[in-house]
Computed example of a mutant assay.
Amino acid sequence: MKTILSIEKIQSPLQVNNPFIMAVHHNDHYPKGNEKMEPVHYLPTWQVGRDFNPNAPWRMYHGEKVPGFPYHPHRGFETVTVVLEGIVDHFDSLGAKGRYGQGDVQWMSAGSGALHSEMFPVVSQTTDNPTELFQIWLNLPSKGKKTSPNYKMLWNEKIPLITETDKNGNKYEIKLIAGKYGTIESLDPLPNSWAFDRSHHVGIWIIKLSPNAELTIPSVSPTLNRMLYNIEGAGIQVDNEAVDFYHCAQLSGSENILVKNGNTDSLLLLLEGEPINEPVVAYGPFVMNSRQEIQQAINDFKSTEFGGWPWDSPEPVNKLGDGRFASYNHGEKIETP
């Protein structure tokens, strides 16, 4: 059995396989902020409201004053936002809001339709504000596309972190966002998620390898789709084939895969899962099973705006001094790490 099906340079967005729809990697070196959590200066290449320059040290995306993504609709899939560094402010059409970062993960299901905003406030006025995150779009099966939108926080302190050493004493670390490693299982996602049923083998791992560390990714299933991304590392070998910096490998799901690190610290992302064996039709922020359902999503959004936007700004942020928190249903329930 061939363990490596393909190796190619990482694109933007990242190449993914079913049950995933899309994934993006944001890595921005924001400067200091002011009292409104805006950058103290903007780059000369900045395109107001549409700043995606891949060669710039940081981007404003669709934000006009604060970096990020002002309110926009989704239907039919889930977003899993993994923040390695920095802060994200969340607001949505259900009256929920929150602030998370520094290792936290937000798992949000758009279900039958929701509006949300994702802004990246630059909260420090004395130091730079580096921000790095992955956002992963996980498809919903047809029955899940009809469910009410929802979200939950996986706080950094509660996410399983496996730290082990290989046979030569070199350390590796797995942050288990979804799936299992050995006998250790991730926190549960939302109940309507494809990942909630453990037999679907959905895995999202953040892997850190110390120099020369070796890690074996275990065999799971012959029908599993599996992608491994070298986000930050030199000299990575996967079953003795080089996977260069910012390259990805599509791997067999039915074989043990040996990953060997080079002589630097490395950061890898693993995405895997059983495919959802249903038609996939995607159009912008909507992912459904047919063109008719896409048209219905467009019509529903035009007529209802999925409940409307209850906040006074299309790109709201929380208060400067706020810590990490999640507020649901207009403050009816509030949780902190």
Rank of each mutant, 00 (worst) to 15 (best):
N150D: 15
K32M: 15
I184M: 11
D312I: 11
Q135F: 08
K152W: 01
C248F: 13
Q11D: 00
G331R: 02
V48T: 11
H26R: 06
G111F: 05
F69E: 01
W311Y: 12
V280Q: 10
G331N: 00
S210G: 08
G273V: 13
N170H: 15
G63D: 02
E38L: 14
Y229N: 02
P141S: 09
G98M: 13
T165E: 11
F286A: 02
P279S: 02
N240F: 07
E164Q: 15
S12Y: 12
G273C: 13
W137K: 08
L14K: 04
K319N: 14
K180G: 10
P141Q: 07
E214Y: 00
F306S: 04
I236P: 03
S93R: 09
D89Y: 02
N17L: 15
Q125E: 11
N27W: 00
N168C: 12
K175R: 15
V82F: 03
G182C: 05
Q292Y: 12
Q135R: 09
S109E: 00
K146G: 05
A114F: 11
N329Q: 10
R99E: 01
H29F: 07
E278P: 15
Q11W: 05
S290D: 00
G144W: 06
A23Q: 01
L84Y: 03
S219W: 03
P191L: 11
G182N: 01
F91I: 09
W309K: 10
P73I: 01
S117G: 06
H247D: 06
K2I: 10
A282W: 01
G203L: 10
I21K: 09
K143S: 14
E118I: 06
L269A: 06
L133P: 09
S254Y: 06
P218I: 09
P189C: 06
S124L: 08
S327K: 10
I231M: 08
I162M: 02
D300R: 15
A326H: 03
D51L: 10
E335G: 13
N156L: 05
G76I: 04
G179M: 09
A195M: 08
K158S: 12
N230V: 05
P211G: 00
P314N: 10
S210Q: 14
F306H: 02
V220I: 15
M60P: 14
S252T: 07
S109M: 09
K171S: 12
A326F: 03
F120M: 05
G76C: 04
Y151K: 14
L94A: 07
T223H: 09
E157W: 00
G68Y: 00
D244E: 12
N168T: 13
G68A: 06
T3S: 14
S186T: 10
E38D: 06
K97R: 14
G182P: 07
N150P: 13
P13A: 05
N53L: 13
E255Q: 15
S93Q: 05
N299W: 07
V48W: 00
N17K: 15
Q102A: 14
T79E: 02
N263Y: 04
G262M: 10
L94C: 09
V287R: 00
V16C: 08
V259P: 05
K302I: 07
T3E: 01
